[in-house]
Computed example of a mutant assay.
Amino acid sequence: MAFWKLSHSSCASRFRRALLLVLSVICIGSVFSHAVLAEDRPVLRIGDQRGAIKALLKVAGELDQIPYRLEWSIFPVGAPLVEAIAANALDFGYVGDATATFALAGHAPIKTINVWRFHGFGAALIVPEKSSIHKLADLKAKKIALVRGSPAHLLVAAAFKQAGIPLSETHLINLTVADAKAALASGSVDAWAIWDPFIAAAELNDHARVILSSQGIIDEVLCGVASDRAIATKRAQLLDFIARVQRAHAWADSHIPDYARVYADDTGVSYEVALKTIERMKVVVTQAVEDQDIAVHQKVADLYFELGIIPAHLDVTQAYDRSFVVGEAGASRSP
């Protein structure tokens, strides 16, 4: 009897070990299989400015169950982002119409396939708290730091034109964001044309003053720019990604504090800066590019040409692909 018990116990033990071995092999095979499948999925390479879109998709739950892989590249401003798309180093990203215009003037092989209608604060001109500058006319013969070809450059050009002041009566200094921030703090420049979250950070951290913003001065669209290669080979992924962005923005409208927390964590700005940025950001992600969107962009290109910022007139219509349409519920569909 004792022998039977011993044999039964030994067999049971061997069975358990064998079962564990089989399960381990299955698990390892499953992990390997998933890894292979993940590598086999198509890749969509996204450019993002300061991680804002990635944070938005993350907090809205739109990074879950994606049938392709996302590879993110983060940029401080839009110019290098759109250059990477033009060079086929990235597939897609959002940049201001001013930035897209500057790239198109350089014959960048890109197309806008989706737009955001931007109704928020936009770019702004800021000055130090104790500056004697209080209005645009005070900037005559002064130095304004900006990123050449950016939405902030557009704001300065449009504001001076609206005020009837020749742009030649001020000094535009092309600087990176980091250098412009330091130049304003040191007094090397008198004003800084920039956008959020840099405006919000300057207001909250450095007590900078806003003397004017894009609102009421210039209409803008944000261009969803893709490479010709991505348009030809990754249409389904691009449509799905845009649909996710559209749903995420709709969700964020009623979850601003939640978005601000993730935005702060992911980008490194404070929660207060993130909240101020998001509260005044009014964006509508379109289902499809419409005539009115191209008209807004064309005015930007015309202004840039009129002021000599770009060397030749541009017909921006040629830089749009209107075949990308996203369904009303955020589900992508082909036109």
Score class of each variant (00 low, 15 high):
G149W: 06
A145D: 04
A84G: 06
A123R: 09
Q65C: 00
V95A: 08
H134V: 03
I66T: 15
A89I: 08
L63I: 14
L81Q: 15
P128V: 13
V177C: 00
F121D: 12
W72T: 02
I126R: 03
A100K: 10
R117W: 04
D138C: 01
S131N: 04
A60T: 10
A100M: 13
R50S: 04
P80E: 09
A60F: 06
I85A: 11
I85P: 10
Y94E: 01
P67V: 05
L175V: 07
V59P: 01
P128C: 04
S168H: 09
A98G: 04
F160W: 09
G93H: 06
V156P: 02
T170Q: 06
A145F: 08
H119G: 13
G149T: 05
I113N: 00
N174D: 15
F75R: 01
R69V: 05
G122K: 09
Q162I: 03
K140V: 14
A152I: 07
E83V: 07
H153M: 05
P76H: 03
V95H: 00
P128G: 00
Y68S: 08
L56W: 01
T112G: 03
L167T: 01
E129D: 09
L136F: 03
A123I: 04
A103S: 13
V156M: 05
S131D: 11
V156I: 13
K143Y: 07
P166Q: 13
I110E: 00
G96M: 05
R50P: 00
A100D: 04
D138S: 06
T170G: 04
A60M: 10
Q162L: 14
S132V: 04
L104C: 01
I133Y: 10
A86K: 01
F121S: 11
Y68C: 07
V95Q: 01
A123D: 02
P76V: 05
S73P: 00
S132Y: 04
F160H: 11
A145V: 03
Y94G: 00
P80Q: 10
F102P: 01
L167I: 12
F75W: 12
T170D: 03
A137F: 02
A145C: 02
L139S: 07
H171C: 00
L175N: 01
N88K: 01
A141E: 15
Q162M: 12
A103N: 09
R69M: 00
F118Y: 15
L81K: 08
A157D: 11
Q65K: 15
I173C: 11
A158W: 03
I113E: 03
I66G: 02
V127P: 00
A124Q: 13
I110N: 03
G51M: 09
D91E: 11
L154R: 09
A79T: 10
R69W: 06
G106N: 15
H153Q: 00
R148H: 07
G61E: 08
V156L: 07
D97N: 14
K54S: 06
P166M: 08
A86S: 13
G122P: 12
F160Q: 06
I53E: 14
H171N: 14
V127S: 12
I133R: 05
A98Q: 02
V95Y: 05
V115A: 05
N114E: 08
L139A: 04
S132K: 13
R117D: 15
K142A: 13
K140D: 00
H119A: 13
L104G: 03
